Simulated scan of single mutants.
Amino acid sequence: MAGDDKYPESTGRRRFVKGVVGSATLASVGTAGAASLTTTTASAGAGGGITQFMGMENTAGPAPRAMPQIPIEIDDEGYVKGFFPEASTRTEQGREITVAEADIGGMTYSANWFQYCGVQTYKGIKPDADMDNYFRYKEGAKYEWQANDVNAGDKVHIDDFSDYQSWGNGIGKSGLGKPAMVTWRSQDVPPSQTMTVQLIRSTNVEQMSGESEWLKASTKEGFIANLNKCTHFCCVPMFKGLSNAAKFGAADEIYCPCHQSVYDPFSIVRKSFVALPRPEGE
């Protein structure tokens, strides 16, 4: 079983065996098993079933799956935002439901991508929620540049990242990308429903954009973003924001300090999970 252990020995934590934690087990449910699961959860609300998504690859630690990517848009004035599909209605099982989904780069991108850690109940994920989609700087930023150079609540502008090709803060290699911690679709919501996003501008992303139709469509000007909740226990990881990441080989990765899960922001993978229907009335 040693090959399944995912905590580094140096952490001294309980060793993790794949399949023990319920979230990992759920993530591994295949198409055949999903049908029976869906029949027990689809009696109320919209959506549900197997959902394919694109996300930052989980490369170490107990997290059961990738963190979902958010496609990038940049408006005519240079402000950066995350794309969210327009709401539409369709009929499922004899009733009309509201959904938010769009075809992007050959993928069906939808609100279902963000169904974990309770995010599926957030106002910002409601298909018809009235949000403007702009990224805004998060209060209490741990990045020194963000704390000093911009104000919490301001919309993110491309010019704020003009030094992305050389930026560094002493954690890992310099010049791999400039990060920020931002919020998305979180105006006028309680703090418990704030959607935190890791935003990075990098030359690596510029090079990646030619690798697939998805990356070409979902990245812009070297920007890439993901919903920043670890898929293990919903902690908030960081790219080049935690000095102890180097102890676990994650100085140049997105690192979660709670249980040492690691994600590669420059490795975007296609994964699937069993999405639950949105609670009725939410």
Rank of each mutant, 00 (worst) to 15 (best):
A35H: 10
G153H: 01
I70S: 10
V262P: 03
I158Q: 13
S192P: 04
R270I: 00
D132C: 04
S267E: 11
Q120H: 05
N204Y: 11
D163M: 04
I200R: 05
R90A: 08
G105K: 02
I97G: 06
A32S: 15
D75I: 02
H259Y: 01
P71H: 10
F223A: 03
I158T: 12
V99E: 10
S192N: 07
G210E: 01
L26E: 13
A34W: 03
T39H: 15
Q207W: 07
N112T: 08
D252S: 15
K271V: 14
Q115S: 07
Y109Q: 03
S43V: 00
S162L: 06
T121K: 01
V150N: 11
G19Y: 05
V29T: 10
R136G: 06
T38I: 07
P85E: 10
T59H: 04
P257S: 15
K81S: 11
G12H: 07
M238W: 04
A34E: 08
D4C: 00
I74Y: 12
S186H: 08
F16R: 15
A24F: 14
S218D: 09
W167R: 04
V21S: 05
R185A: 03
E221Q: 13
V21M: 11
Q146A: 10
Y134L: 00
G49N: 02
G55V: 01
M208F: 12
F161Y: 06
D5V: 05
D5R: 14
F84P: 02
S166L: 06
P62M: 13
G281V: 03
K229I: 14
G94W: 12
L37R: 01
E139D: 15
L276F: 15
G222F: 04
Q146M: 11
N204C: 13
P279K: 12
G106T: 00
S202M: 11
P62I: 07
A100F: 02
E77P: 14
D252R: 09
D149P: 00
E280N: 09
S88L: 10
P127A: 07
P190E: 09
A129P: 02
I125T: 09
T196S: 00
